[in-house]
Design a binder for these strands. Structure first.
Lengths: 145, 145
DNA sequence: TTAAATGCAAATCTTTTGCACTGGC
DNA sequence: GCCAGTGCAAAAGATTTGCATTTAA
């Protein structure tokens, strides 16, 4: 939608307002609050819209769940977040956006990153005509034996 | 939930009523209608509850969408179907239940099987303590270049 | 100031549940 | 005939949309 930020400036630890501006998003109160929750200090890597909304309320931010959804969608489209499709009943988001894969715990619906060195793909098919591969997702579903 | 059918009797082409009985499900009118839609002649492999409900209506069966959902869940739990997590906004089901992987077309939300010979996994991590691997799903997301 | 952009109430869509009723045994 | 098992209306969740309001420039 908006221009991706140049590969050169890795903005991971800069001021949230500057980072938003750079991505073409206005630094509104709501977005700043979510930015801080997501990217300051050791935030959770995997979360749903609902969980983040709860955290935001607990932190004293005042915003509606709809705004959380809309903001997550925007953040995803500019590359700040990545959506993980693993659970058909709700959307999971991930603050780690580089190529990596997941364990999914079937019992409690929790996600866990897999150390990138521990999964490798062997052969991959060519993309069907007229399309190209955008991403390869591997989900390892685990549960108690 | 119910006893899996012995590996020996591959019931793929037997009478739907007998097959249901074997799986411990009563052969009700609704279930029989869905069995026929799903397993007779060249049915679609990938579908959502809503799509199947539309097909059932078109075929003259008279059942509610809730019944379609409940039935799909039962069919999945006895191993007649498999659920594919690929799209966070709705559940996809697949009549092909053996290990295989998928292309997902981001533009139109369509699924396509990948020929099993064309994807191989390299290294896999051990399951986290106290759990075991239930399934490994690979989804290759494709889109127009 | 001003209009593009935002944020949210309400609508929509998907899925699950509680329970009256049925039809397979 | 009878009751375990069903099927569905209604409820519950999840997500999106339309538009009045805000606010960054």
């Amino acid at each position: 939608m908006t221009a991706p930020r140049p590969a050169s400036d890795n903005g991971d630890h800069q001021d949230p307002a500057a980072r938003l501006a750079e991505l073409g998003l206005r630094p509104t109160r709501q977005r700043l609050a979510l930015m801080r929750l997501l990217f300051e200090d050791g935030r959770e890597r995997h979360f749903t819209a609902d969980q983040l909304h709860d955290e935001a309320e607990a932190a004293g931010a005042n915003l509606s769940l709809a705004t959380v959804y809309n903001t997550l969608k925007q953040f995803t489209s500019v590359g700040l977040l990545r959506e993980v499709s693993v659970d058909a009943t709700r959307s999971w988001f991930d603050t780690k956006t580089d190529e990596h894969h997941h364990f999914f715990f079937e019992e409690d619906g929790r996600l866990m990153d897999i150390d990138p060195g521990l999964v490798t793909l062997g052969k991959l098919p060519a993309a069907p005509d007229g399309s190209e591969i955008k991403r390869v997702d591997v989900v390892i579903r685990v549960a108690k034996p």
